[in-house]
């Protein structure tokens, strides 16, 4: 336990892997926002939509997505002075991923004993919400058929992240992301009834 703790803390967060794409536009905006928080507005404007959509895809209801999006930007703004990454988008979606994961965990009907007495949240689970939501139902119906780790990657891809950024968000190697992504798409190909095609014609 102690060793695990030491190892995890010692390792720190995922360092942006070599080759992580720097986004000069974001970089300029981040530098400005670090000097003056009002200058965060362009970053907010740029990312509020993809972050919200990502939260909606994962949480299944507008209300939950709005709550999560609010948290993501509030946390990002609070942490911005300490921001040192090379990919603002990857950093921001790491926060989003954690917020959404927290929200989903919070909704599960399992809790530590210490918190058992205040598990009274009547909100529907993400799965329930997904079943009743109209928007994006077809996509969710597809994604729900993927294993969770593959689904996470596809959701982040749909949010517009590169493979390197996804690896950073999920704390996985890029190789692992490639493999899981490949399996996910292969499975989706079957679900979407895309016929195998001979390769090479487009080369």
């Amino acid at each position: 336990m102690a060793a695990w703790s030491r190892a995890r803390l010692g390792a720190g967060p995922a360092v942006p892997p070599a080759g992580d794409r720097a986004d000069p536009s974001d970089g300029v905006l981040v530098a400005a926002a670090q000097a003056d928080r009002q200058a965060f507005a362009p970053l907010y404007d740029r990312y509020v939509d993809p972050v919200y959509r990502y939260c909606l895809r994962r949480l299944g209801s507008r209300e939950a997505a709005e709550d999560a999006t609010s948290q993501v930007f509030a946390k990002a703004l609070a942490a911005l002075p300490a921001y040192r990454d090379r990919s603002f988008r990857g950093w921001l979606f790491t926060i989003a991923h954690n917020v959404v994961s927290d929200t989903r965990r919070q909704r599960r009907p399992v809790a530590p004993l210490a918190d058992a007495e205040d598990r009274v949240d009547p909100a529907p689970t993400p799965e329930e919400a997904a079943l009743t939501a109209d928007e994006g139902r077809a996509l969710r119906a597809l994604l729900v058929q993927l294993p969770a780790d593959q689904r996470r990657i596809v959701e982040l891809r749909l949010a517009g992240l590169t493979g390197v950024e996804i690896a950073r968000v999920l704390g996985r190697s890029e190789g692992a992301v490639k493999m899981l992504q490949f399996r996910a798409v292969a499975r989706l190909r079957v679900l979407l009834e895309v016929e195998p095609r001979p390769q090479g014609g487009t080369r």
Binding site: R57, R189, V194, E195, R197, Q199
Partner: peptide, 17 residues
């Protein structure tokens, strides 16, 4: 090509408002 087509269809299905 089949995987690329699957990706294209998947993205087309993404109608999250």
């Amino acid at each position: 090509p089949a995987l690329a087509e699957a990706v294209r269809r998947l993205r087309a299905l993404d109608d999250a408002p």
